[in-house]
Nucleic acid binder design. Structure first.
Length: 1132
RNA sequence: AGAUCCGUAGCUCAGCCUGGUUAGAGCACUACACUGAUAAUGUAGGGGUCAGCAGUUCAAAUCUGCUCGGGUCUACCA
């Protein structure tokens, strides 16, 4: 017989993946899935560009699975989904990799190696692992266009970036300013915090710390502090970097922090002073024993210093008060400050939210030049800025005795004297230090020179994101975040606290900032296109700023200078200003995050090309990346979308969590717990891997990756589905079923079929809803449950006979009813399998296609060559019958209870039992039970199901309170009532069910309200049924009649015999269609039993007849119940 | 320091939005059974202070607050 449906020896998910991959390639299925949708609505997806200079890890598989499944799903829902791949190619990681490769440092660039050569190496190295990435992409089944990716280092890409920058520049959103950055005076360079995160840069060091005393100025505002005492008042502020004190311009306090004015003495000089310090920190500076002690006997140097709190107030009250400069000198006079920052108003107390009472005094010494917080708060409170230290790390002229001294030992001087100590000593002598001590803390060091870093103001270019802050917050509210909390929380919060975007990077391999400027800084130009640059160069040549080399034409020169828009070429370009002065490019490169944030525009080389394409593909309907991109890519996309187009850049964003190892540790190469995705895919197959990643945890939860989990998915889902298919194929091939019959209307199919179809359509409904809601985990789990619990373990198991029962008898009589039943079963199972293949296609694309193709091979009625080109199923509401699904659930529960009873009393299922009694739970229950009775009987091998009417007094009932209805009414009496109800007897229960029951008859005596309960306040169940074994689940009770009549015993015996013979057939490797003759050795009474069930037995074992012989020499022994029988089967 | 997610059985996770009776499932383990889907299946068993504390409520795994533990992000970083 021709086998229409392929049958397999065993399931090999890896073979399936290989075969299907080949099929996709050969038939160009991915291309077709896009081209076939030409003209349909598009679903816009952006691929976040990975950097190909590192190997892909398993965590890339999860985010890409997520992206892929959404795109596949939307394709099947009828959208055209273009997916352009991309590569992120600039930035520090690439540069560091190259430096390592070449064995050089940043300083060597331009010296040992030319910038040109260096950048060429970067360009080459950055796509080092591109092949590996492409391979992973293919093998995991991620459909994305790898043939036409956008690459951020290409000229066209950079040109769009320049266009974007020019737009921002024209809108006055691009500006240059000073910012505080980590700076290494020893190396003479700023450091990125990436560099600060190199191992070993943070070291524990002991520094001289000072609690300095800033003398309060008495005026109208501060009068409230002065009225209680005549002594001078000092604000105490702590610092671990005393060298910043001459640059002090303010003191910052916390608005809501409590501060105290305290009368005490300077511990070094013994002078009586009043100090101001945060209330929670008093204990750090003054001993409790000193509180309230008499001042008369105190002298300098005494261990216990007397003190007394004069006043307590909030930081807010201090705002605006003035103090005298701590270390005045020529260089830091008010005039000098105002010379540098006109209009500045320093030397006052301000408030800042970064102030804590963790350490220090609760008053923060603020030197805007040397701290990011200081700078920010200084700027907003107009303190001005003073930088009394130069770029070499030494004090500038005009700082008195400290001028010319290095603030840290940057030059490895033999006799270096710590200037910080000298400053402390000076303060101590002047009575301006309250405490001086060595303080050990963690401080960053330059990873090249090992010298301490300082924070230092440096020029940098910024995007004025804060200008559009409100709009960005508003736009963010329209974005569908998965999970929502990331949007409102992490991202929303980030937007609320937004600062301007520091674009500047002082590296070599990156997009150059296209700003040219005259030396005096008076004139500058921002170039917005290559064309514009060419024009400007032309002007410059005409002006004579460019000395053309021998015989080089103007055109050739321009071509040479613009063929690569990177360093060093752009730096060699000199342009001419409107006033005729030469302009050179500012040295900065831009943050690589700008590169990726601008991909919606740059991937199409907009606006220079593809204007229409861009319009159709902006904004994205959907993006997805790891949650670590929240403030990375998600942010930069959002910024540029908002600033350039006043639009969101994406409508839905899914942020997936991390992949941890099975012990919950972060995967890292160093720990050796990183999972190689290639190994996983090769060994376990992409489908199981993808399914596991998606269904094990919500994408945004972090996932503990364990290969055992994938194996479980293999076994449970794919194994079961494979078995189900095999089962179908086996019998469909036998019966030559290939969907050649007219479809039997669902209403005419048996209840079992209607049930699984209802369940299937309910599943479709749920899966569609979940995918639409970007909840693939819910969808996957639902499919899993359907396949295992409903389709395989219930439908197929219960319907097995329908498939292998012959539709015609041996002599060819066809029973029309049987035929129809069989066709119905095939049609039903086929529909389930085909539908499941489509439902699972987004998540398990290989297996789904394999299953689909096998089924279509059999039916020969393929709508499409691949499941991925089909339409996603749509639930047919008419087929969904929730009532039927409930009925089946009831039948399942009852069957399960009966099976557990059989187990309990040790009567195997093959032994028929006469009767099961089920107490009714009301009319509804009876109706629902009725249609399940047949199923229960055959599933549990029981002859009859007897329904016990509600009002019988045969069983003992048990009532439980319905907390939901009663709780609201009774309130505090609930506990009491629940207890009462539990003790109700049959007649009381009946009273309630039939009308109402007064629960507290003596309510009047107790002075209470009467409590009436009705049937709906009770949940009834059964306590016991005399003479029966009883099992209970919730309100449901079944009672099993255990009596075995001879007839039942004999029937059991026959069934047992059938089972043994079936085993023999299997052992002898008979085909399931082979006919046999059974020969049995005669033995006491056996013949009578067997003969009584002759027809049944023959039908089951496909025997033409059963012969009995007195003695069977070459027979086999089988055990039936307690008998040993000798039998023989002969194939005919 | 701030933000955010997570904490339920040995493990992986449901349940929480919308409070209600004895908190579920799978894996693993133990025992028994079943076997024409068989690398499957059924039944039973052990296994839980639902991280902790407090509050709201007749009633809290569920709502609120705080604390603890873990992860991630941010602190001008790619």
């Amino acid at each position: 017989m021709e086998k229409r449906y392929p049958e397999y020896q065993q399931l090999s998910l890896t073979t399936i993946a290989d075969d299907i991959l080949k099929f996709w390639d050969e038939e160009k299925i991915f291309e077709k899935s896009v081209t076939e949708k030409e003209g349909k609505d598009s679903f816009v997806f952006y691929e976040g560009p990975p950097s190909a200079n590192g190997m892909p890890g398993i965590h890339h598989v999860i985010s890409r699975t997520l992206k892929d499944l959404v795109c596949r799903y939307k394709t099947m829902r009828g959208y055209q989904v273009n997916r352009k791949g991309g590569w992120d190619t600039h930035g520090l990681p690439v540069e560091l990799g190259v430096e390592k490769l070449l064995g050089i440092t940043k300083e060597d660039i331009g010296k040992k190696i030319s910038v040109e050569e260096y950048n060429a190496t970067c360009r080459r190295e950055v796509l080092k692992y591109k092949d590996k990435w492409d391979e992973l992409t293919r093998k995991m089944g991620y459909w994305v266009d790898l043939k036409h990716p956008y690459i951020t280092f290409e000229n066209d890409y950079i040109e769009t970036l320049w266009w974007c920058l020019r737009q921002l520049y024209d809108k006055d959103l691009l500006y240059e300013s000073v910012s505080i950055q980590p700076y290494s005076p020893a190396a003479g360079t700023g450091l990125s915090s990436h560099e600060l995160n190199q191992p070993g840069t943070y070291k524990d060091v002991k520094d001289t710390s000072v609690v300095a005393m800033f003398k309060a100025v008495r005026n109208q505002d501060s009068e409230f502090l002065f009225k209680d005492s005549t002594a001078d008042i000092y604000y105490l502020a702590w610092t671990t970097t005393p060298w910043t004190l001459p640059s002090n311009l303010g003191l910052t306090v916390g608005e809501k922090i409590d501060y105290c004015l305290i009368e005490t003495a300077n511990p070094y000089t013994g002078d009586f002073v009043n100090i101001v310090v945060a209330q929670p920190l008093i204990g750090q500076y003054l001993k409790p024993e000193g509180e309230g002690q008499c001042f008369d006997q105190y002298k300098a140097g005494d261990k216990i210093v007397p003190w007394k709190v004069l006043k307590t107030f909030k930081g807010k009250d201090l705002e605006g008060l003035r103090y005298e400069q701590l270390l005045p000198s020529e260089a830091n006079t008010l005039e000098k400050v105002q010379e540098i920052t006109p209009g500045a108003d320093p030397f006052k107390i301000i408030t800042g939210d970064f102030v804590t009472t963790e350490d220090g005094t609760g008053i923060v010494h603020t030197a805007p030049a040397f701290g990011a917080d200081d700078f920010k708060v200084g700027k907003s409170h107009n303190l001005g800025i003073l930088t009394l230290v130069d770029k070499e790390g030494k004090f500038i002229d005009g700082v008195g005795e400290f001028s010319g001294r290095y603030v840290k030992d940057y030059k490895d001087e033999k006799d270096y004297v710590d200037v910080n100590v000298d400053i402390a000593v000076k303060l101590k002598l002047e009575g301006r230090a309250f405490r001086i001590e060595k303080y050990e803390h963690n401080y960053p060091h330059c990873w090249r020179t090992d010298k301490p870093v300082i924070y230092y103001p440096l020029e940098a270019w910024f995007i004025r994101t804060t200008a559009a802050k409100d709009r960005m917050i508003e736009l963010n509210k329209t974005i569908n975040w998965k999970p929502a909390s990331t949007g409102t929380g992490r991202f929303g919060n980030w937007l609320e606290n937004m600062v301007d975007w520091n674009l500047s990077r002082s590296r070599f391999w990156g997009t150059p900032l296209p700003v040219w400027r005259t030396e005096d800084g008076e004139e500058e130009i921002c170039i917005g296109s290559k064309e514009e640059l060419i024009v400007e160069i032309g002007k410059s040549i005409d002006k004579g700023f460019v000395a053309l080399a021998n015989r080089e034409t103007k055109e050739a020169y321009i071509l040479r200078m613009t063929k690569d828009l990177h360093k060093p070429y752009v730096d060699d370009i000199v342009l001419v200003s409107p006033n005729g002065k030469p302009m050179k490019r500012v040295p900065d490169l831009i943050d690589v995050w700008f590169d990726s944030g601008a991909m919606p525009y740059a991937q199409w080389h907009f606006p220079f090309e593809n204007k229409e394409t861009f319009k159709k593909n902006f904004p994205a309907d959907f993006i997805a990346e790891g949650v670590d991109q929240t403030r990375g890519w998600f942010y930069t996309l959002h910024v540029l979308g908002a600033l350039l187009f006043d639009s969101v850049a994406y409508k839905t964003v899914v942020s997936n969590g991390l992949v941890l190892d099975k012990n919950g540790n972060k995967m890292s190469k160093r720990l050796g717990n990183a999972v190689d995705p290639f190994v996983t895919l090769a060994e376990l197959g992409p489908d199981a891997t993808r399914w596991y990643l998606i269904t094990n945890a919500s994408p945004w939860d972090s996932l503990r990756f364990d290969v055992e989990g994938i194996k479980e998915v293999q076994r449970k889902l794919f194994g079961t589905l494979y078995n189900t298919y095999q089962f179908f194929a086996l019998y469909a091939n036998v019966d030559d079923f290939h969907n050649q019959h007219a479809e039997i209307p669902v209403s005419e199919r048996p209840e079992m079929d209607r049930w699984i179809l209802s369940s299937l359509n309910s599943l479709v409904d749920e899966v569609v809803k979940s995918f639409d809601d970007y909840e693939p985990t819910v969808a996957g789990r639902a499919i899993d449950t359907f396949v295992n619990d409903e389709l395989s373990n219930w439908y197929v198991r219960l319907c097995r006979r329908r498939f292998w029962k012959p539709a015609r008898t041996e002599n060819g009589v066809v029973n029309a009813e049987d035929v129809k039943d069989k066709i119905s079963a095939y049609q039903t199972l086929l529909e389930c399998l085909v539908t499941v293949s489509k439902l699972m296609a987004p998540v398990a694309p290989f297996f789904a296609d394999w299953l689909y193709k096998n089924l279509m091979d059999g039916t020969g009625a393929a709508q499409k060559p691949s499941v991925h080109l089909t339409d996603f199923p749509v639930a047919n509401g008419l087929v969904i019958d929730k009532e039927l699904e409930e009925r089946m659930a009831l039948a399942q529960d009852i069957s399960s209870l009966i099976l557990s009873l059989r187990k309990k009393v040790n009567i195997k299922v093959r032994q028929p039992l006469q009767k099961v009694i089920i107490p009714s739970l009301g009319a509804d229950f009876e109706r629902r039970l009725q249609s399940g009775i047949q199923i229960i009987k055959s599933e549990t091998n029981i002859k009859e199901v007897e329904l016990l009417p509600v009002d019988n007094d045969f069983i003992k009932k048990r009532a439980k309170a319905n907390f939901k209805t009663l709780g609201k009414r009774l309130g505090a009496r609930m506990k009491w009532a629940a207890n009462e109800i539990q003790q109700l007897t049959n007649d009381k229960i009946d009273e309630a069910v039939n009308g109402q029951l007064l629960l507290n008859p003596d309510y009047e005596k107790a002075g209470e309200d009467p409590i009436y309960i009705t049937g709906e306040d009770l949940e009834l169940s059964t306590n016991e049924i005399p003479g029966y074994e009883v099992a209970i689940k919730g309100p449901l009770t079944v009672a099993l009649d255990l009596e075995l009549s001879d007839a039942l015993k004999n029937e059991g015996y026959s069934r047992e015999l059938v089972n043994r013979v079936q085993n023999l057939r299997k052992v002898h490797k008979l085909e399931i269609t082979d006919k046999i003759v059974l020969i049995v050795e005669q033995k006491n009474g056996v013949k009578d039993i067997i003969s009584g069930f002759n027809e049944y037995i023959c039908a089951e074992i496909l025997a033409r007849q059963i012969d009995f012989v007195p003695e069977l020499k070459d027979g086999e022994k089988i055990e039936v119940n307690d008998d040993i029988l000798t039998v023989k089967i002969i194939k005919i």
